[in-house]
Nucleic acid binder design. Sequence first.
RNA 1: GCGCCCGUAGCUCAGCUGGAUAGAGCACCGGCCUUCGAAGCCGGGUGUCGCAGGUUCGAAUCCUGCCGGGCGCACCA
Length: 555
Amino acid sequence: MIKTRVQAAIDRCFALGVEQKLWTEAAAGDYAVEEPKRAGQGDFATNLAMVAAGREKRKPREIAEALVGLLSDPANTGDLFQRVEVAGPGFVNCFVKPAVWQAVVPVILEQGEEFGRCSSGAGREVLVEFVSANPTGPLSVGHGRQAVLGDAIARLLSAAGYTVTREYYYNDAGRQMRVLGESVRARYLDLLGVPYEFPEDGYQGEYIREIALALVDEQGEALKEVSDHLPFTKKAEEVIFADINATLARLGIKFDNYYNEHTLYEQGLVDEVVANLRDQGLVYDQDGAVWFKTTEFGLEQDRVIIKSSGEPTYRLPDIAYHREKMRRGYDWLVNVLGSDHIATVPDVMAGIKALGYDPGKVTTVIHQFVTLMRDGQQVKMSTRKATFVTVDELLDLVGADVTRFFFLMRKADSQLEFDLNLATKEGQENPVYYVQYAHARLCSIQRQAREKGLTPVAVAEIDFSRLDLAEELELLQAMAGLPSLLETAAVALEPHRIVFYLQDLAARFHGYYNRHRIVGEDEQLSQVRLALALALRVVFANGLRLIGVSAPESM
RNA sequence: GCGCCCGUAGCUCAGCUGGAUAGAGCACCGGCCUUCGAAGCCGGGUGUCGCAGGUUCGAAUCCUGCCGGGCGCACCA
């Protein structure tokens, strides 16, 4: 909020400088406004002079001096700065008036849940596709990371003003599902005492036996003579999907739409893609299969889209699906994928381009693997062998808040080491509690104030200039930073930034709390600090909501 | 062999579109509860930012090459 104003003020002064011939329009470059980490370097700093100096072949400090002259005139900046100065090689450091920071409190209190949100995505529709696991088994921790990441991205985009649709794309036909059905059938026959041959690459999880057991309960021996896998596959899908949805619900995740690959075939959309590509001479037949000339799009080799058996490979429906998403009118398609699916991206992008759509509208977020650590040992995972740890097990162990927080503590690009020992500790080592505790503590202060007869007065009656401690101004600055942080995090699709922000804010607050009394002797001071506490509570609540972690009033 | 990701403190990781003296958590050591919650606070850091070049006023950040780790490279998804 303040940063935006500073940016505008600098822009305005730059333009004034052009008018006054202090520099030329050409001096404009990609200059930055940042918040220096070090005290004494101002609340904001810009490298404008250094950038301009490079383009104009002049001395940075000379331009910086001129810029300071303009920025120092309140008429040019809306009376924003206490002082502006040149520093180092040519930085311009801006010190914002305390009153500007202090005015942040009433704004936050007034905006409440709205505080932090912005409208930069207003009018734009974005579809976030994630999880998209076929119903062959319970969600594993890898899916868990993706689920939480995708959901947090959706929350961020929504807070940035976008209209967001969460979509789950799946396929309940195909080889995987056939093997699943055969596996259930084998277990079913086993339960009936009929000799069977378990599929070589079948699914071995305990859940397969449970599904078979349910079939025995419901159907008895009715399916004994059925040689087809379909009834078994159908039952398995039903049970597993219900299970997946229950898991997602526990994580606080709800999809707006489930898109079944079937639809693409039923509506002839897959054939349409092939025909379209064929018309353009982008496919050819070889060895009984149909190939897509992906080399036309700069890729290493052409790819099969229809096998010699007549079945399509995953690429074809994937391309058809993406075209459908384009046709549905979204401005932006965000796909969240595990790093094991990275190879599919270029092919699909080539397909989109071939069909005349803009691949620039698609952003793929690839997240790296999750390594589960227990007692310093890596827990090996494999869906087939059922040695995986499921999201449900994780939730049983640590709960939804810890699960979500831990999955969002790392940027997607980093492999994530999930320390089960640490996550299960309900103590100070656990960063989730650290942040939640700040919120609970603020709520407690509110209760205390009420008990002591300190009822909050209207903000108009509060003298905010009394928030003059360095710590208070730093707190205010951090609080005021949420809107621009949210906007950056949303566009970058990086929810982990919110997590780090919350940890930093919690540290500032805990430190402040331990040194200064909020509710004390001086009633005026108590009122203003109570208002600060209420505003802080809003910021924590809003931040936690962004990552889908609860904000408890007491713990 | 090729593509993508990662390599920063003992461990796990941040570091915003290149910026000023590189940060946090954990672990470890010492201190702080007769006043708003000790799930907290305060103090304690000798890091070749994997290595070598390059780009420039300025590089952990961008480019090239190499080394190490992960994930892929099907007529599986």
